[in-house]
Write a protein that binds this DNA or RNA. Sequence first.
RNA 1: CGGGGCGUAGCGCAGCCCGGUUAGCGCGCCUGCUUCGGGAGCAGGAGGUCGAGAGUUCAAAUCUCUCCGCCCCGACCA
Length: 571
Amino acid sequence: MTAGLTAATSSPSRPPNWPAWLPRRPWSWGPGAWRCSPEPGLVPPIVPARGFPPCAGRAIFPRRPRRRGFHTHPERGIGMADIAKRADDYSRWYQDVIAAAELADNSPVRGCMVIRPNGYAIWENIQKILDAKFKELGHVNAYFPLLIPKSFLAREAQHVEGFAKECAIVTHHRLKQVTVNGKTTVVPDPDSKLEEEYVIRPTSETVIWDMYRKWIQSYRDLPILINQWANVMRWEMRTRMFLRTTEFLWQEGHTAHATAAEGRAETLQMLEVYRWFAEEILAMPVITGIKTANERFAGAVETFSIEAMMQDCKALQAGTSHDLGQNFAKAFDVKYQDAEGKVEYVWATSWGMSTRIIGALIMTHSDDDGLVLPPRIAGTKAVIVPIWKNAEEMEQVCAAAEGLAAQLRATVGNVHVDKRDNMRPGWKYAEWERKGVPLRIELGPRDLAGQQVMMVARHDRKKEAVGFQQLAEVVTNELARIQQDLFDRAVQRRRENTHIIDSWDAFTQLFDGPGGFAECHWCGDGDCEKAVQEKTKVTIRNLPLQRDETPGACVHCGKPSIGRVVFAQSY
RNA sequence: CGGGGCGUAGCGCAGCCCGGUUAGCGCGCCUGCUUCGGGAGCAGGAGGUCGAGAGUUCAAAUCUCUCCGCCCCGACCA
């Protein structure tokens, strides 16, 4: 050790009496010295306290700038949550917002995520609202198991093809302790190998239709309208928080009907439920339409989707509804006897919305300061920030805040009073903005004296003084205004980025540049669609239910087309 | 699975090129006092097997190899 010390002190690269805590070469000396100094020849100050000149390390080892966390803001002081700007790095922004709003965290398992309370509150609201709507339409909830016999997947030919590549498989039912090189670990016990292996459900059609066979004999057993809230697992190569994770939560509806028309009607009805939910509750405008054959669900006769535009102009499929025809009934031999005594296969639908919608929600409304939530889906509708200087004021202001909150809870839902005494109001404002609470209500001694509060909207920072007497009414109206504003804003953005395009030049120009939705003619040929995708990464999102059906020529191959479809890059 | 980037305290980073002191800094956290209407100040304090494992060496955050994880771009997909 001593020898080492001596060597260091006498090192030629370290000048005599150089402080030990400084890097050996904070700036270079000798020839070309003071390279980092703004004015050559001027001796840079010796760092006064512990700490390195900011350029020291980077000048020698330039590094890509990384996210900076909670750093000092040059103008606004300390502790600014550092969220990447959308314009600079959209996908980092997305992740930063999730982290800053504490929606989710990475899990120890690759591709999986932990949904934190703030994120789960959103999911709970989604569940609550959708579930009520499903039930209103006659659906009931049930639960089917996580594990599916491997052989079930193989029953429906297209279904296997669609899911085989992304299934997790359970092969053993027991672990065994083993000691290798003195370390104890566990391995699957070879003696516990399963005779029939199980697949962790990527979707539940197969188990459900296996059961429906038992439950359906006559037309009097139909329709069956079952929904389940569950987790599913699809082994993805590349994952992204909420948008595509290995395990995700969703709702899957599975219905059985006596006629094709009834099945189709159900499919369209649920599509409409999703449209309603996205637009009215999430303030997210969507295009309802039919998927092309290439994008159709494995095993479906027809797939319908709702497609939303994110702030980076990419499309996101936010919900799907499938008309399964008789495909699963045939695969699982589900027949019924009609009133005339004829035996027929049952007609099926399935439809789902997943935690992916939360990703869409984030990317539709949030801004560079963090999450923005529409009031109808926000777990907390408003937060009251009491302001005080001393214990006496604190008591008065908090009591008043609690009183107002109680009153508001009765009319608008969950309202939080932030009584933490270890941070100042400004900090709290910033924090609740990051977390996307739609409305902030400030209440200080001066307000209390005037029997009023300051009310600030998250999305546009609009500030308004409101008297105690009018508060409940004004807040209700303000939440409605926010909801509408967010929707209008999103519609506006989509309108600005949707283009009618009739030439391949314009098409490539759009997608080489800003991107967006392109309403184009398409010949209807799947190979032509694939060719477009290979050239430009652009796919057909859907064939809108309301579309321009003036005939034209395919934007790619020029063959005749009977109507316009929506092209976009997608998540 | 290919190409690139990265892994050091809760978060963000410096240190690595050229191995050597007790591994630092900012924010956050804890304690106390003063504060509190847009991200508070001062003082004191806690917190690290430097992603994991092997190797080289008297000595490894630093050099070598392997593995793991994260991010970006592809391939794949809802």
